[in-house]
Computed example of a mutant assay.
Amino acid sequence: MGNFRAFVVTLLALDAVVFVVGSVVAPPDPFTQLLLVGPALLLAPAIAWWLVYRDGFARLQGVVDPDEE
C-alpha cells in the first residue's frame, strides 16, 4: 500500500475512533460533542502523518509486539 493510501486509511480509522469515543464519552448535547470531538478531528491528520510518514507504526509495533524480547 502506498504512503498516501496508508495515510488516508489511517486518517479515516482515526476519525471513526474519534466519533465513537466522542459519542460515548460526551453528553448527548450536540454543542458539547462538537467541543470535544472537534479538536480531536483537527489533531487526527497530525497523528496519521506521524504514524505513516515518521514510522510511528514501526515504533508502536516495537512497543506492543509480543514476539520481541
Rank of each mutant, 00 (worst) to 15 (best):
D55I: 03
N3I: 11
T32V: 13
A6D: 03
Q33L: 15
F4I: 13
A16Y: 00
L12M: 09
V20D: 01
Q33F: 12
P30R: 04
L34A: 13
V63S: 07
V24N: 01
M1A: 09
R59L: 02
A6V: 03
A13C: 12
R54E: 14
R59I: 01
G56I: 10
F7E: 01
G38I: 04
G2W: 08
G2T: 11
L36E: 03
E68M: 12
M1L: 10
L42C: 14
V20A: 08
S23G: 15
P28Y: 03
F31C: 03
W50G: 12
A40S: 06
L35I: 10
N3H: 07
M1N: 06
W50R: 14
V25M: 11
A46D: 07
A40C: 09
A46V: 09
A44M: 10
P27E: 05
V20F: 01
A44W: 02
E69P: 05
P27K: 10
D55L: 06
M1Q: 08
L11W: 07
D29L: 14
R59F: 01
G38R: 06
L43Y: 09
R54W: 08
R5K: 13
E68Y: 11
D55C: 07
M1S: 07
L41V: 14
Y53G: 09
W50V: 15
G22T: 01
R59G: 00
V64F: 11
L12S: 06
V25G: 10
V64A: 12
V21E: 00
V52K: 04
D29V: 14
D67C: 11
L43N: 08
A26M: 13
P27L: 14
G22C: 05
W50H: 10
Q61S: 13
L60Q: 04
A6Y: 00
L11I: 08
P39G: 15
L42S: 13
V25A: 14
A58V: 09
L36W: 01
A26L: 11
R59A: 08
L14R: 02
W50L: 15
V24Y: 05
L34M: 11
D65E: 00
P28I: 15
V24G: 05
T32L: 06
D67E: 09
P30W: 00
D65M: 04
M1V: 09
R5F: 15
A16K: 00
F57I: 12
E69V: 06
Q61A: 13
A6R: 01
L42W: 03
L35E: 04
A16E: 00
D65Q: 00
L41G: 05
E68H: 12
V37A: 14
S23V: 14
D15H: 08
T10R: 06
L35Q: 03
E69R: 12
V18P: 01
V64R: 05
Q33S: 13
A6H: 00
A44V: 11
P45N: 08
L42H: 06
L11A: 10
W49E: 07
A44Q: 07
R54N: 12
L43F: 14
E68C: 10
W49V: 12
V17Q: 09
F57D: 05
F31P: 02
A13W: 06
R5D: 08
L11D: 03
R5T: 15
